[in-house]
Design a protein around this nucleic acid. Structure first.
Lengths: 196, 196
DNA sequence: TAATAAAACGAACGGTCGTGCTATTGTCAA
DNA sequence: TTGACAATAGCACGACCGTTCGTTTTATTA
């Protein structure tokens, strides 16, 4: 790994933390450079434009989510355990955030849902990837006979994901510990309702 | 109504639209003044600081939500009809947004959940108000015998609100019309499950 | 170790940000 | 209709924005 690649990684780590609290737009090259003790222009040269920096941040955030939430869940046995692990890891991702400001992609979703361009495309792609992972796991749970055969996979995914989105929003705003048991009970109910 | 009050209202209308697409932070006094054909300083004098402008925007947004979603629902007969109207009006608020960029308060929730200060306090207050309205309606539906007596009102409110939050996020990002039937089915299921 | 390439710097650019000030215009009651 | 005051404009400020450029330092490799 060359010097440039190493520095780039360090920059992205800090940029990720900054984005999580201030948003993709709030991310600023000047203060980012300050926190890293390097010059604006030196940092800038690694990305070529602010938009490319933001895109790199999004991709890195998606990697982090995959490493923390998705990948560990995929090591669970296929079927219901894997579905449960996905939701459980997602809940833990919110309860004990790796990044100080919570999930940058969810924040960026709302920040950019009205701003066409490559950044919104990136966000859509990452969210769609997550949806496909969840739907795949649910479908396999049906195939394994853990969930009812007549289950509407898209509907199930929507409800589960909505609960996680809503939980994140409520928990982050109010820091109310009750939200944890609410979302757990809700997910549990969702699964229980469609069990064979 | 004095000239000043009238101008202030016009400013807030435009500010609301701008906030809905660009966020509370993206709201800018210069471009806001440009769109209204007035000077920065003239506009500025109405609010004294950007933070007070932002707070006024939040309060106006809450009024708009109350006029569009809550107030019409409160005219439905108490009990289940009122609960259903609350969720239905909320869904319609997302499907046919009064403001071009969707609900500014939901956006501000995520934007400011990590930034302590009077603005976050405002946001918390408005979100808490909504939660109390919904819980009150649900509780009355229990009292009227429309919903089961052993229903956990807080849990019910969390699930219903999460579905609406999640729906907004998904629908605004992807503009997928399928999301509409997903959320309707989910809300319907939630209610059906707790009916007497 | 010398030659070459990559990386980082410092200074400056045109813009825009929020915010003061002073002066001018407009409104509205006596 | 005039006098008092509210409303708006104009201008300037310091700070920060993303970006460019030429130079200097540091890595890499022949």
């Amino acid at each position: 790994m060359s010097k440039g690649e190493r520095t780039r990684a360090v920059i992205l780590d800090q940029a990720l933390a900054m984005t999580s609290t201030d948003g993709l737009t709030g991310l600023t090259i000047g203060t980012l450079a300050d926190r890293l003790g390097m010059s604006k222009s030196g940092l800038f040269a690694h990305f070529g434009s602010k938009e490319m920096l933001q895109a790199a941040v999004l991709d890195r955030a998606a990697e982090l989510f995959a490493d923390t939430v998705v990948r560990p869940a995929l090591q669970q046995p296929r079927g219901l355990p894997r579905v449960l692990a996905l939701f459980e890891n997602w809940i833990r991702w919110t309860l004990h955030p790796v990044l100080p400001g919570g999930c940058p992609i969810q924040a960026a979703s709302i920040e950019f849902d009205d701003r066409p361009g490559p950044l919104r495309d990136h966000i859509r792609q990452h969210q769609e990837d997550l949806r496909r992972v969840i739907m795949g796991a649910v479908r396999r749970a049906v195939d394994e006979g853990h969930l009812r055969a007549d289950l509407d996979v898209e509907q199930f995914a929507f409800e589960g994901m909505s609960l996680c989105y809503g939980f994140t929003q409520i928990y982050r705003l109010f820091q109310d510990p009750k939200a944890e048991s609410w979302v757990r009970l809700a997910i549990q109910g969702l699964v229980e309702r469609h069990r064979t």
